[in-house]
Amino acid sequence: MSGLRKVHLSLPASTEDLRRLQLGDVVYLTGRVFTAREGVYKRAVEEGVALPASPAELGSANFHCSPAARIDDDGTRTIGAVTATASFRFAKWLDGWFALSKCNIIIGKGGMTSADYRSMFVPHAAIYLTTVGYGTGALLGRGIKNVVAAHWIEELGLAQGVWVMDVENFGPFLVESDLDGNSLFERENAKIEPRIAALYEGTKPPTLRRFGETDDRSDEVI
């Protein structure tokens, strides 16, 4: 059996709750979460459109996700599976987003850099939870008890809209960043790093290089 620590967290989570979390803890959430990704960030943070509901109504945990969902003609909303999308692309909006949304948990895929955590998450006392797999969409789908609202669907589409959900034992997630801005992924990368050089021994750089492997555009690729 896995020796990882399991933590059940009620939402909204207090800063004290978050402080108790350690990198690599397995977390299950109960309470309210909502989806928002680049479409929402652009509209709210860049274009200044007011959020479709108050922070209390949306919840304090923002999931980087588009659900496999449908809205029937009678308005019934069905969410099948939910899986996070890669978060690193959204870093540029997060500072403004935390200020607007008052979120203190971001759930997503793959995390961000510890530099991002230190500059944007730490000042807002926020942490990052990563989904597991990342394909555990069916397990996460089971944790959704009620789809409370779906906002901005007409403006942004099913995939980019804001889905507000009440969840129970929603998980598993892993604590990727703590309140000090440390990153689990970076910790793991550092452990793997030393082996990689040995692995490349005996291989040689390709005959033809390409731009992108050098940022100096006066270089040639041969």
């Binding site: 099948g80 599976a81 899986t83 999308t85 394909g135 969409g137 789908g141």
Partner: peptide, 15 residues
């Protein structure tokens, strides 16, 4: 997760 998907007849991954 694969078991949950089959039991519930829901997509295994949300993407």
């Amino acid at each position: 997760n694969y078991d949950a998907a089959k039991e519930d007849r829901r997509a295994m991954c949300g993407d």
